[in-house]
Amino acid sequence: MKVAVLGATGLVGGRMLECLERSSLPVDQVLPLGSERSRGRAVIFRGEELEVLPVEERHFEGVSLALFSAGSGPSKAWAPVAASKGAVVVDNSSAWRMDPQVPLVVPEINAADLAWHRGIVANPNCATIQALMVLYPLHRRYGLCYFSAVTYQSVSGTGRGAVEELKGASAAYLAGQPWESSVYPRDIAFNLLPHIGSFDDQGISEEEWKMVRESRKILGMPHLKVSSATVRVPTFNCHGEAISASFEEKPDPREAREILAGFKGVEVMDDPKGAVYPTPHDGAGRGEVLVGRIRPDTGLENGLAMWVVADNLLKGAALNAVQIGEALFSGGARV
Score class of each variant (00 low, 15 high):
residue 267 E to S: 12
residue 240 G to V: 01
residue 244 S to A: 14
residue 294 I to L: 01
residue 306 M to S: 03
residue 205 S to H: 13
residue 278 P to A: 05
residue 286 R to K: 15
residue 246 S to A: 14
residue 294 I to V: 01
residue 214 E to I: 07
residue 304 L to I: 04
residue 236 F to Q: 09
residue 273 K to M: 06
residue 308 V to H: 00
residue 313 L to K: 02
residue 283 G to L: 06
residue 221 M to P: 08
residue 298 T to E: 14
residue 262 G to D: 12
residue 316 G to I: 02
residue 272 P to T: 01
residue 290 L to V: 05
residue 292 G to M: 02
residue 294 I to F: 00
residue 237 N to V: 15
residue 272 P to Y: 01
residue 314 L to A: 09
residue 241 E to I: 13
residue 280 P to N: 05
residue 294 I to A: 00
residue 270 D to Y: 03
residue 328 L to H: 11
residue 279 T to L: 08
residue 313 L to Q: 04
residue 234 P to W: 00
residue 289 V to W: 00
residue 227 S to L: 15
residue 209 W to Q: 14
residue 250 K to C: 15
residue 243 I to K: 02
residue 207 E to P: 04
residue 241 E to D: 10
residue 219 L to R: 07
residue 296 P to C: 06
residue 296 P to A: 12
residue 313 L to T: 02
residue 219 L to G: 15
residue 213 R to H: 14
residue 271 D to W: 01
residue 309 V to W: 04
residue 275 A to C: 07
residue 323 Q to K: 15
residue 323 Q to M: 13
residue 282 D to G: 07
residue 264 K to D: 13
residue 236 F to N: 04
residue 310 A to G: 11
residue 266 V to H: 08
residue 265 G to D: 03
residue 283 G to F: 03
residue 294 I to Q: 00
residue 236 F to M: 12
residue 315 K to E: 08
residue 278 P to W: 03
residue 296 P to V: 05
residue 299 G to K: 10
residue 218 I to P: 07
residue 275 A to Y: 06
residue 226 V to Y: 10
residue 273 K to R: 11
residue 307 W to P: 02
